[in-house]
Design a protein around this nucleic acid. Structure first.
Length: 452
DNA sequence: AACTAGGCT
DNA sequence: GTATAAGCCTAGTTG
């Protein structure tokens, strides 16, 4: 909504094309843009997705999401107190006062002053011992480390979210926060959100939950979220045409349990929690082109065990392997990769002599058609939903689309039509795009974002 | 501006 | 010998 030229230009063009206003001239940029789209073969994406989506995004930005300023203020003070207490203990244990937000100073304290064993702790690009969370996990036996991890989490959430949101809420009479969505901000076709980013509001930690409680519905309304269940794995199963994976989704099985039963060679009923977690890491890793070392690092397996699991995986889901090889080969020949919708990503570096660069491009090539089609599906769903809700005269009144978070849509819905609207939205999302298998959406609602 | 770190899907 | 999983945005420190 702010002055991002390409975004606002697209919105202007979109408005004109969708509702031609003969009084106003179409911007001159349109002809240039049209040429570019034609040359790059992106006309379909532009007309069917980007164009109709642009005004929807603008409306979402304008509406904003309500936050409870009092909750934020209370939370801010509580966090400040806890931070203060943590800092004091850490200084005492360190026997020094230093800047905890400086990785360089912290590294000196930990590894020189306190002489903590540096075995297995990597160095950063600039040569200091790393103090990131993975490094700290390795030296967790020292009593100061857990305190530092607590401090980091607290400071992150307060300085990146609580304080900026507090400030922004104060600027708006109704305490609604207005993000900016970027439709041209990613290489895969996903949306991005900035100023503030509302696509990465914490959820996992205790403090994340506290923060999400501050995102609320207006009086008389309820927040409702709609999550595509396993959309990227469904897209993978579908585009790769893998029979086993397709069958699993057609029967609405738990894909991670199915995967575990395959790679561990046990019955689905015998799969343990740990085995399911392994399989989940494996499934996501496959989408990203993960190699055996990364899998080993993530699971604590040896490299050899990790290799065995991955090769077992590809034995079971043979078409996934074949599809990935086909994509890499095609990308090498063409210099770009595209998803089913014709959305393209240029990757000329895939033939680089530098192996690291070439491998990185291969992983990007494998991932883009998956991530990019999932992104198109949710965008199409947004367009369909807006159309349906406008027909009902609910759009931006009884139902308000607030956020789009990659595989989730967040709405604020008037209580008198809540159930009916939820059914409608869920249905539109599930029928937004035809895959070889059904799309599944999970809906939840509540007074605040933490309840969902 | 580069670097380190960490929040999300 | 070293790093090694896709895509983003933001805050704080350092030089």
């Amino acid at each position: 909504m702010k002055d991002d030229t390409l975004e606002s230009q697209k919105i202007e063009i979109a408005k004109w094309l969708l509702n031609p206003d003969k009084q106003q001239k179409l911007p001159d940029e349109w002809n240039q843009l049209k040429e570019r789209l034609k040359k790059e073969g992106l006309e379909k994406i532009f007309h069917e997705i980007e164009l109709p989506l642009a005004p929807i995004l603008e409306e979402m930005e304008k509406i904003g999401i309500k936050v409870d300023l009092e909750i934020l203020e209370r939370l801010s003070k509580k966090m400040a107190k806890e931070l203060d207490a943590l800092v004091k203990i850490i200084y005492k244990k360190a026997g020094a006062v230093f800047n905890l937000n400086s990785p360089k100073q912290l590294s000196e304290i930990l590894f020189e002053k306190l002489k903590i064993d540096t075995a297995g702790v990597p160095k950063t690009k600039t040569g200091i011992r790393s103090t990131d969370a993975a490094a700290l996990e390795k030296i967790k036996n020292h009593p100061i480390v857990d305190l530092i991890l607590q401090y980091r989490e607290l400071f992150k959430i307060r300085s990146t979210y609580v304080e900026p949101l507090k400030k922004l809420a104060g600027l708006d009479a109704k305490h609604r926060i207005h993000t900016q969505f970027l439709q041209t901000g990613t290489v895969t076709g996903r949306l991005a959100s900035q100023n503030p980013n509302l696509q990465n509001i914490p959820i996992l930690s205790k403090w994340g939950t506290e923060l999400r409680k501050a995102f609320v519905a207006e009086s008389g309304y309820t927040l409702a979220s709609f999550d595509y269940s396993q959309i990227e794995l469904r897209v993978l199963a579908s585009v790769a045409g893998d029979p086993k994976m397709i069958e699993a989704f057609q029967n609405d099985l738990d894909i991670h349990i199915l995967t575990a039963s395959q790679v561990f060679n046990v019955d689905t009923k015998e799969v343990s929690k740990d085995q399911r977690r392994f399989a989940k890491t494996l499934n996501f890793g496959i989408i990203y082109g993960m190699g055996p070392d990364a899998f080993a690092r993530n699971t604590g397996l040896t490299r050899e065990e990790a290799e065995n699991f991955i090769s077992e995986y590809f034995n079971d889901f043979l078409e996934v392997k074949r599809w990935q090889e086909k994509i890499i080969d095609k990308t090498r020949r063409l210099g770009y990769v595209e998803n089913l919708n014709g959305r393209k990503r240029w990757l000329p570096e895939i033939i680089s002599m530098n192996q690291r660069i070439a491998r990185e491009a291969e992983r990007a090539a494998i991932n883009m058609p998956i991530q990019g089609l999932a992104a198109d599906i949710i965008k199409l769903a947004m367009i369909k939903i807006a159309r349906k809700l406008k027909e009902k005269n609910w759009w931006n009144d009884k139902t308000r689309l607030l956020l789009s978070i990659h595989d989730e849509l967040l709405f604020e819905i008037s209580n008198d039509i809540l159930k009916e609207a939820i059914a409608l939205i869920k249905n539109e999302m599930e029928s937004a795009y035809k895959l070889a298998i059904p799309l599944k959406v999970e809906a939840a609602y509540g007074e605040n974002w933490a309840e969902l």
